[in-house]
Design a protein around this nucleic acid. Structure first.
Lengths: 218, 218
DNA sequence: CTTGACATGTGACACACTGTCAGTATAAAA
DNA sequence: TTTTATACTGACAGTGTGTCACATGTCAAG
């Protein structure tokens, strides 16, 4: 009754240029899909090349035709995730007009994407600590958001919608909070309810950036 | 001119009951110290039992007399760190009177302790993703702070010093931000300046908890 | 001291996983 | 079909782990 409906979801070929995927493309997609399925029910540490490949039609050695190692594979998943997140974050990053609704829209999109692909997020961040190369990619991924948020804060500080303070450390703080919270909430089953997570994140962002605070100095 | 001044810093025996440490205690302390030294200049992933023990006076197998594996050793370091942090966090958790200065004192202490022992923090959080047992300990460690912060928020919401909202998710968000930021800032050399980190953390905590926000609803 | 008993440490082993390579099978092109 | 390039495989060596029987060290009682 059911069949694997997402096997080719990773190819994302441009419809116009569609053509029969070659054997190599199919095997590669099969491996990626197997990894993805795995991450929905197991942590990264339990993944081995042998185990992964035995859930595909190819033997263990075939893995090395497509990926250097498990971290390389994981990096591929990260790239897809980054694209997805960047897309939903656009409103606040680039939108015009009242920034508060834009921020809320972006945070809502972020939570939605991470709810849908939480295990990828968790797998990547787990894997990153064990591999220098992937760790750099992961840090780069985070740093790109840090940069974008910093720029946006500074731009809005210039026009007075955000109070004056050193933008980057606050941007980093907010982004790290997002990442840690989203991983914890949606990284593995059972996932938490998205709404309270969104509410908490929104509260912290909004009060940090858009509330007229009366912070007494030291 | 210099000598290893901290070799026995891990024993922490009660001064009154001091007595000559047995051979086993000395070896154990030597291993812990070697690990600590290691973490100041290398990430957890580069630690192996063989490498660790070859920087001590004992052979590789002796390691297993004292620890189950590297995660067990790392757990020992976590326990010491938790004690240190709990101590400096007391003011806001338990103090009486105007909560804002208490919070600032606690956050200041937190940043100071983590600046001093950042590599431990990073080593533990790195190691945790690779080992189920240590991961549980680490989550427990975080959860204890979540609980304490949640309780404190709710108590102050009851007396009106903090606005009404669901306390736990916000507590979790703030704690995860702290952890991620402190690890990133102080987890490995070169460490960042403590002051901007403290400022950013303080800003987020204070504006989230103690500023009269005018958050427009959705 | 010397002895004995217990505490501490060791070398050698089996295991699991990794990454490589020469050679084979299979798919695609001619 | 034949040819050629591509995809795949099994066997191997390497690295690190954890365990075991045995060796060595320590220290108190005789």
């Amino acid at each position: 009754m059911s069949f694997n409906s997402t096997t080719n979801s990773l190819l994302k070929s441009i419809p116009a240029l569609e053509r029969k995927p070659t054997k190599a493309e199919r095997t590669r997609a099969e491996i990626l899909q197997a990894a993805l399925d795995f991450f929905w029910s197991h942590p990264f540490r339990e993944l081995t090349i042998g185990g992964l490949m035995s859930s595909t039609s190819a033997g263990r050695s075939a893995f090395y035709q497509y990926f250097e190692d498990l971290y390389d594979l994981t990096e591929t998943l990260l790239r897809g995730l980054e694209a997805g997140i960047l897309e939903v974050a656009t409103p606040w990053f680039e939108g015009e007009g009242d920034p508060l609704p834009l921020l809320k829209e972006s945070l809502g999109g972020l939570v939605r994407v991470c709810y849908e692909r939480g295990p990828i997020l968790k797998a990547v961040s787990d894997a990153a600590v064990s591999d220098e190369r992937l760790e750099k990619e992961w840090n780069g991924f985070l740093a790109r958001f840090d940069g974008a948020v910093t720029a946006r804060i500074e731009q809005q500080q210039a026009v007075g919608s955000i109070p004056a303070f050193e933008a980057r450390p606050v941007a980093v703080a907010l982004n790290r909070m997002d990442a840690a919270l989203l991983i914890e909430a949606f990284g593995s089953r059972p996932r938490r309810q998205p709404q309270p997570v969104l509410d908490a994140i929104t509260r912290v962002w909004v009060s940090t950036l858009y509330s007229q605070t009366t912070q007494r100095s030291q």
